[in-house]
Design a protein around this nucleic acid. Structure first.
Lengths: 138, 138
DNA sequence: AAATATTTTGCAACAACGTTGCATTGTATT
DNA sequence: AATACAATGCAACGTTGTTGCAAAATATTT
């Protein structure tokens, strides 16, 4: 199935601009997740740092991408699957970070297991981050 | 069982200094996790920012405390249980972050479930962070 | 207990990351 | 094509975290 960048932007009532098209394209073309710095390097001096920050923020708010909690507390982003409800992302899949190459994967097929919390605790979201070696580095 | 601050420092071959005693004491007295900023506020101008950073770093290296990955990518620390092997922390328990009061708990009794990774992927560490409402805020 | 060696601290400077306000430019609407 | 609206770039700023080095505190030796 094809991911239409223009359609995605329109659907979310966002103006179609160069930065949004290019940044969204990067996510579509990348299997793994991207950090702000990755985008900055890939795009060179084409966009201002601030524009990249704001674009990422907007995409997160609209539910186009989601943030990934990482073991080293760096901020990474990845495309949301179509089913993501707008603005509220259901983080029901597992993330994997390769210790060698640094790539972050969304393991969409592994769902987060249910946990029995202590009395009085209720969960709204569960994030699972696995570190180790990925298929390429093993 | 009593947690002896001095003993812990000695055991890890660390000089016994004011900052280490006080910062370690904060962790012992706190049920939840602490961020660098928490420590800075609680200790006022007593210690330099840099000292706090270095103390936390040292404690992590020695396996006295461990870092907690959070959904909002802020760095938090919590006391390790005695069983932690020096320098290498076995992060086999679940962490809980309250959306209301911001407290972070180590749910020591809930162990991280085993996951079936895709072919070629091997795990070295698994972090689980649950967000929601804690016992006090529910 | 005093002198020496070793560690730790505080300061200053710096780098990375992220945010905000505002004028300018680009996109959408009429 | 003209107007209204939204996004961008720039500058400035704040926070967070790091590094080098002299001064101070701790540990060790005599």
């Amino acid at each position: 199935m094809l991911y239409s960048i223009i359609e995605t932007l329109k659907k979310n009532q966002l103006s179609i601009t160069d930065s949004r098209k290019k940044i969204l394209e990067m996510f579509v073309k990348t299997k793994g997740a991207l950090a702000h710095a990755d985008i900055e390097h890939q795009s060179g001096t084409e966009f201002d740092r601030v524009t990249i920050y704001r674009t990422l923020q907007t995409f997160v708010e609209k539910g186009i991408i989601h943030t990934i909690p990482t073991a080293d507390n760096s901020v990474r982003y990845a495309l949301c699957k179509e089913e993501c409800s707008e603005g509220h992302h259901h983080d029901d899949h597992v993330h994997f970070m390769c210790d060698d190459c640094g790539t972050t994967y969304c393991l969409d097929k592994i769902s987060v297991p249910h946990l029995n919390l202590p009395n009085g605790f209720t969960a709204s979201q569960t994030d699972v981050v696995v570190s180790g070696k990925c298929g390429k580095c093993n």
